[in-house]
Computed example of a mutant assay.
Amino acid sequence: MAAVVKIDTVTKYNEMRGVPTLHPLVSVIDLSAAKPMPVATFNFGVYAVYLKEFKCGLLRYGRGHYDYQQGTLVFVAPGQILGVEPKATPYETKGWALIFHPDLLVNTPLGKHIHAYSFFSYHVNEALHLSDKEAVIIVDCLKKIAYELEQAIDKHSRALITANIELLLQYCVRFYDRQFITRDNVNKGVLESFEQLLRDYYASNKPQQLGLPSVAYCAGELHLSPNYFGDLVKKETGKTAQEYIQHTIIDLAKERVFDAGKSVSQVAYELGFKYPQHFTRLFRQKVGVTPNEYRNMN
């Protein structure tokens, strides 16, 4: 098995792509003027945002694959693994890459909430697909960052560069919201599958074996990353995926507490709670009374 190549600095990435380093912590690359990524598996120690303007190659992300299409944005965060697979035919790479080191964000407004941009943890097959107008806006942001990199570094450089990176990421949030809306039929299919998954889960002995269904478990069963799945559920229902799961559990609990042959503790264990008091606390939080009080009231 080939060794994993660690990319832990902007300079190392630039050298691999054959472009100069204008700033030690950030780089904007016109991919048409850069060397193609070699066929290898890379462990990123930097943030990367790729805008691919033409179909140009097959990537491996974890165990999945993604075939780039025109106008696609892919995000990579430190610690993630990205592999470039061999292509049978040569291709010309066109597009842009933004690479920045986590140290660039230290003591900046962006550094305080970079983790709020959940798309850095999406799978590559959950990439952002841009309209022509959206792509123009993203390229404009990249060119503003590139302009700053061409100037002499001064006390304003970091603030201006990180502000423009944040502007780009804010546009990406808007464009992802649009993508969730325009993929309405696909989203509804995911929600239907999610509901069926929960029904099947509680029709089996999995709650006793595995405990409560987690967001990560449900996302994995639906072949989605937890963050993308969570964002999709939130956009469609107004609830977080965790709240949606809890709502389903409480609906089941309301039915099962009326079984006079079972104690509240037995119901809790059947639903996957490790400790009955956790079930009682959640039930009271969502219903306003304890399971026993609910049983007696009805």
Rank of each mutant, 00 (worst) to 15 (best):
A203D: 09
A163E: 01
Y201C: 03
N43T: 09
T182P: 02
L31H: 00
R183Q: 13
E255I: 05
C141Y: 06
L271P: 05
Y50I: 08
L169P: 06
A146Y: 00
S157V: 07
Q277P: 11
L31C: 06
L128E: 11
R174I: 07
Q209S: 15
K286H: 12
D140H: 11
F120H: 02
V84K: 01
L25P: 02
E192I: 14
H123P: 03
E270A: 12
T108P: 00
L98N: 06
Q277F: 13
V124I: 13
N107W: 06
Y201L: 08
I145Y: 00
K234S: 15
A219Q: 05
V139Q: 04
V215N: 02
N107Y: 04
V26W: 07
D259L: 11
R63N: 14
Y244S: 14
R284L: 13
K52T: 14
G261A: 12
Y202A: 05
G288D: 06
P276I: 13
G71Y: 00
L25R: 01
G288A: 07
R174S: 04
H129M: 14
S121I: 11
H101G: 12
K188S: 14
L82M: 08
P109D: 11
E134T: 03
L22A: 12
L128N: 04
S193V: 10
L222Q: 08
T240W: 03
I245W: 07
L210F: 09
R183G: 05
F100D: 03
Q208E: 07
Q277M: 11
H156V: 11
L110R: 05
N298K: 08
V106H: 02
F175T: 07
Q69F: 04
G220H: 07
V49A: 09
F100V: 03
Q242W: 08
A48Q: 10
Q208Y: 02
C218G: 10
